[in-house]
């Protein structure tokens, strides 16, 4: 990510944190205090939200002053971008995955978990595959076997699925 991109992402993160802190403070505005409790249920979330806002403002000030505090944060994803440039990284596929997952979750109450998960695995697998007929056949087989298999397996384990 470029320095500009880094500054933008830092600023976006800081603004999101300020919003989260402000939302927390707003949510606590009418919180009553129990008589036996010297600080009340709102105090610690309120202090935490205040600390979040203060730190986010420091981060934002750093961005504004072009003193980005960005470092190489520890990644829990293994980035292979730097290692392997033999393929195109397609950020659009992450957006497709988010959209497909939203549709999947929305479809569960209407279609039931089994059929919603089969449809989801078909659609997302198709989108992520190379679209060759053989790959599509495998995607379909994986979706059907996994969909029916997981559903049956977890119902047998008494996991309640919609």
């Amino acid at each position: 990510m470029s320095n500009g991109g880094s500054a933008r992402s830092d600023a976006g993160f800081a603004v999101a944190m300020i919003a989260a802190g402000a939302l927390t403070m707003w949510g606590l505005r009418n919180q009553p205090r129990a008589p036996f409790d010297p600080v009340g249920a709102a105090a610690i979330p309120f202090w935490t939200a205040a600390a979040v806002i203060a730190l986010a403002l420091v981060l934002l000030a750093g961005v504004v002053l072009r003193k980005s505090m960005r470092g190489d944060a520890a990644s829990y994803f293994v980035s292979t971008e730097a290692i392997d440039d033999s393929y195109a990284v397609r950020p659009g596929l992450s957006v497709v995955a988010i959209a497909a997952t939203v549709a999947f979750v929305a479809a569960v109450p209407a279609m039931g978990f089994r059929y919603a998960s089969i449809a989801f695995m078909l659609v997302l697998g198709w989108q992520l595959s190379d679209r060759a007929p053989r790959s599509l056949a495998v995607v379909a087989a994986v979706a059907l076997v996994s969909g029916f298999g997981l559903d049956a397996g977890f119902r047998a384990m008494m996991v309640s699925l919609p």
Binding site: M121, L124, Q127, L128, V139, G147
Partner: peptide, 15 residues
């Protein structure tokens, strides 16, 4: 290929 694995991981997470 990831196309076969990733959708299953999401369904497992949902379960």
């Amino acid at each position: 290929p990831r196309a076969y694995v990733l959708p299953i991981v999401i369904v497992l997470c949902a379960i």
